[in-house]
Design a protein around this nucleic acid. Structure first.
Length: 427
DNA sequence: TCTGGGGTCCTAGGACCC
DNA sequence: TCTGGGGTCCTAGGACCC
C-alpha cells in the first residue's frame, strides 16, 4: 500500500502559523514578483479567488473581503517543509519516504498489517500537526494514482474524513473511481482530459480504468498511459523514488521586477542566476557540463503593452563538467552577448545546467587545464558563509550590486525560522 | 503597470553506423 | 530493372506535476 501526505494550503498555513489573528481568515500567497495567486486558504477559495489568477485582476475581490496577502517567503516555507519531512522520517524508515514536492510526500506502507492503515494514517496526521503546526491530509491506496485520488477525497470531505481517506477494498475503490472526474486524476492534465472527453467520451476515472492497455499506448502518451491504466487497476506501476537520487537538471529563472533594456543589466542578472544554480549544483555534490541561457522578450521598447512573450536561448557544451561559479559565469557571458539585441525589452531570463555528474566522477579533458583545487576551496568557503548567514553575503561583482531587475516582493512576511533578527516576538 | 519557478518522463524523427 | 535491415544517439518538443 502507498500513502500520499499533502500539506493543506501549504504556503498559507506557513504564513498563518505565526499569525494567529489570521487563523480563520482568508489568506493568499503570491508568486515571485507578486504576479499570480499560488496558494489560497479555504476561506479564500470560498470567496472565489482562483488558483494562478493574476493578482492585479483580483485586487477588488481581495480588498472587499479583507483577504490577507503575502509575497512568497521561500525561506519560511523551505524550513517548515523540512520539519514536516523530518517528522515523517522519524515515524517511518527514511527509504519509505519519497519527498515529492515541497508540501507532499509518498510513503511506502507495505510493511504495515492490512487492518492498521486507517489508525496509522490518522496518527501520522495528528503527529505532524502537533510537531510542526501544519495541517496535512493523507490518502492511502494500493497505488500512487489511487492514493492521490484518496487524498483528494480526504480534502474534499474534510469534516467527515478528518483529512484521512483509505481505499483498501475493491468495492470502495470502484465506487470512488466511478464518481471521480477523469481530469482530476494525477497524470491527466488539461490536454488529455479534453481529448478523453471529446474523442472517446470518457469522463470518469472508472471509464478510463476499463480501457485496454494497447489503446492507452496509442492515445495516452505511450508507456505513460499504460502505467496509468495499470495503476487504476490496482497494480503498482510507478515505483517510489530513491531519496538519494540526484537531479538531472538544475534551473534558475526569474521574471524581472521591471523590464531590462541594457546589456550590462542582462549580464548581471544571468551571472546571478548562474551563481544560484551553481550553488544548487554543489549542494548535491555535482558538476554540470551543459549550460543553457535563455531570455524572454516582449515586443519592442515603447510599443503599447501586450503580453506576448518570446523566448530565445543559446547553449554550450563545456569541455569539462564544472561546479565553479566563476568558471560557469565565464562560459555564460558570451552566450548573453550573443542573445542580446539592442532596443529589445527583456522580461525574464534563466539558466539551466544539465548533463550532471557527481563531482568525483568528472571526466577530465586532454585539452583544458585541470580544474584547480583552489577554486573548489574557494567555493566551499563562499557556500559556507552564504549558508550560515542565509543569504548572499559573498557574491561575484558580475552579478551586480544595484540589481535593478530584482523581483518585487512587497508583502513578504518575516523569515521567522531562519534569521536571528527576524525571530517571532511575543510582547 | 501588471500573468511564477522548477522539475520529470517520453516520443518522433533525423543523422549516423555497420 | 533495380536501391536492406537493424541499431544507437541526439535534439526538439509535448505532456505532465507541484
Amino acid at each position: 500500500m502507498k500513502a500520499i501526505i499533502d500539506c493543506n494550503s501549504f504556503y498559507c498555513s506557513c504564513e498563518r502559523l505565526y499569525r494567529p489573528d489570521l487563523w480563520n481568515q482568508p489568506v493568499v500567497v503570491l508568486s515571485n514578483n507578486d504576479g499570480c495567486i499560488i496558494a489560497r486558504s479555504d476561506e479564500a477559495k470560498t470567496i472565489g479567488l482562483s488558483m494562478a489568477a493574476p493578482y492585479y485582476q483580483q485586487r477588488d475581490l481581495i480588498a472587499k473581503n479583507k483577504v490577507a496577502v503575502f509575497s512568497s517567503n521561500y525561506h519560511l516555507y523551505g524550513d517548515l517543509s523540512m520539519r514536516v519531512m523530518d517528522t515523517l522520517r522519524t515515524i517511518l524508515p527514511p527509504q519509505c519516504v519519497e519527498v515529492y514536492s515541497v508540501d507532499e510526500a509518498f510513503l511506502d506502507l507495505s510493511h504495515l498489517p492490512p487492518s492498521s492503515f486507517h489508525p496509522f494514517a490518522a496518527a501520522l496526521r495528528q503527529t505532524v500537526e502537533m510537531w510542526t503546526g501544519i495541517k496535512v491530509s493523507v490518502g492511502v491506496a494500493p497505488t500512487k494514482v489511487l492514493a492521490k485520488m484518496a487524498n483528494r477525497l480526504a480534502k474534499k470531505n474534510k469534516a467527515a474524513s478528518d483529512c484521512v481517506w483509505v481505499l483498501d477494498h475493491p468495492e470502495h475503490i470502484e465506487e470512488a473511481l466511478s464518481q471521480f472526474d477523469v481530469g482530476d486524476l494525477w497524470g491527466i492534465g488539461r490536454r488529455y482530459a479534453d481529448k478523453l472527453r471529446d474523442q472517446f467520451g470518457i469522463t470518469t476515472a472508472h471509464q478510463l480504468k476499463q480501457m485496454p492497455e494497447a489503446w492507452a499506448r496509442k492515445h495516452l502518451g505511450g508507456v505513460v498511459g499504460v502505467r496509468m491504466i495499470r495503476e487504476l487497476n490496482g497494480t503498482p506501476s510507478i515505483p517510489l523514488k530513491d531519496p538519494l537520487e540526484q537531479k538531472k537538471m538544475i534551473a534558475t529563472t526569474r521574471m524581472f521586477g521591471k523590464p531590462v533594456y541594457r546589456l550590462e543589466e542582462l549580464r548581471e542578472a544571468v551571472a546571478s542566476f548562474v551563481s544560484r544554480a551553481a550553488e544548487k549544483l554543489r549542494r548535491q555534490g555535482c558538476a554540470a557540463s551543459h549550460l543553457d541561457v535563455f531570455v524572454v522578450t516582449n515586443g519592442q521598447a515603447g510599443e503599447q503593452y501586450r503580453y506576448d512573450p518570446r523566448a530565445d536561448h543559446r547553449y554550450l557544451q563545456m569541455p569539462r563538467a564544472s561546479s565553479l561559479t566563476h568558471e560557469l559565469i565565464g562560459y555564460a557571458m558570451p552566450l548573453v552577448d550573443d542573445l542580446f539585441r539592442d532596443g529589445q525589452k527583456y522580461l525574464k531570463a534563466g539558466v539551466t545546467l544539465s548533463m550532471i555528474v557527481p563531482d568525483s566522477e568528472v571526466q577530465q579533458n586532454l585539452f583544458t587545464p585541470q580544474q584547480n583545487v583552489k577554486g573548489k576551496a574557494l567555493m566551499e568557503a563562499v557556500d559556507n558563509l552564504n549558508f550560515s548567514m542565509r543569504g548572499d553575503v559573498v557574491k561575484y561583482v558580475s552579478s551586480g550590486l544595484t540589481r535593478n531587475w530584482k523581483m518585487r516582493q512587497e508583502m513578504r512576511s518575516q523569515r521567522f525560522t531562519t534569521r536571528w533578527e527576524e525571530l517571532f516576538e511575543i510582547k
